[in-house]
């Protein structure tokens, strides 16, 4: 590969990894800080992507809208839409054990996937939504570096928000809930409300990542999400990087995305006739990697601050 191609690939790689980093930060609010299990990450991601796409594309007869609104409005809408879905699902499950939330998020992600696939008036079904404008394309042009810059900017924004939340009294209550729910309840705090807030906050970050993804690719369709593998990768990223540690979440996203991309180029060597097997093999490797991390280094690369080794 010549230098120009390598650079283009590098920018593409970093942008995608960056979007995963935002997802990992969102999951870190839910799992890392609060101990909630969300297996429907891809669902909130898709809601964000479609919301921003519908808000920002030119008017089309193929789907709802578009409303031709600016990029930042699209992202804000993406966060709001994911947050609304999160309030709905959270309201039902916040008082229950974390397993119920996990099952409910599987359900909601599945329903979102089905709806986006079948409700053509809303999303144009399997044909997807094309022509999603790149971020700030009118003022800054279509250079991929701009997209990368925008994504990195949003990582910083997300990191700043989550890190501030983590250090705040609110974040301390979340950790206390995770460690000793009864104690927090005895202290007179409304545990369910804190949990709901964290769940909605995390989900809105996932919506933000979805919006970024839509603008970065310019086209979205129900199949473009790898619904389950997407969720799974984010989980591996967070666990590998270090649940509860925001820098760990970002680091994990880049590290695992690098690994994932590397296995992709490896399997490409095998040739087209083994493409599906190669794909399965990649997923299998990541699946095994997760087990190895959980058993050998459950605290991740960068352990949570103030947590003793292996205490999780």
């Amino acid at each position: 590969m010549e230098l120009g191609g390598l650079l283009t690939y590098g920018v593409f790689f970093l942008t995608q990894a960056g979007i995963y980093a935002v997802l990992a930060l969102g999951l870190n609010v839910q799992y890392g800080l609060t101990g909630q299990i969300n297996i429907g990450v891809a669902g909130f991601f898709a809601v964000g992507a479609y919301t921003s796409a519908i808000l920002t594309t030119a008017t089309s007869s193929a789907h709802l809208g578009g409303f031709d609104l600016p990029f930042l409005v699209g992202i804000a809408g993406a966060m709001a839409a994911s947050a609304i879905v999160a309030v709905g699902i959270g309201w039902v499950t916040m008082r229950l054990r974390s397993d119920y939330l996990a099952i409910a998020t599987i359900g909601i992600a599945e329903i979102i996937r089905l709806a986006f696939k079948n409700e053509e008036w809303l999303t144009n079904g399997v044909r997807g939504i094309p022509g999603i404008p790149r971020p700030f394309v009118e003022t800054l042009g279509a250079d991929p570096l701009i997209s990368l810059g925008v994504v990195l900017g949003f990582i910083l924004l997300g990191y700043w928000m989550v890190e501030r939340a983590r250090r705040s009294p609110w974040g301390r209550v979340l950790r206390a809930i995770r460690e000793n729910e009864d104690g927090v309840m005895a202290a007179g705090k409304n545990v369910a409300r804190f949990r709901l807030q964290a769940f909605v906050f995390g989900s809105s970050l996932m919506g933000m990542a979805g919006g970024l993804y839509a603008h970065f690719l310019g086209f979205i369709s129900p199949e473009a999400f790898m619904p389950l593998y997407g969720t799974f990768l984010v989980w591996v990223m967070l666990i590998a990087g270090g649940a509860g540690n925001n820098r760990g979440a970002v680091l994990g996203a880049f590290a695992i995305w690098m690994l994932w991309s590397a296995t992709d180029s490896l399997t490409r060597e095998l040739g087209a006739e083994y493409a599906t097997q190669a794909g399965a093999l990649r997923v299998l490797l990541i699946g095994v990697l997760l087990q190895v991390i959980l058993i050998a280094r459950p605290q991740g690369i960068l352990p949570e601050h103030g947590r003793r080794k292996g205490s999780r």
Partner: peptide, 10 residues
């Protein structure tokens, strides 16, 4: 639970 999610994928 998280481990079993990974096992499912694997």
């Amino acid at each position: 639970l998280i481990s079993s999610f990974g096992i499912a994928i694997a």
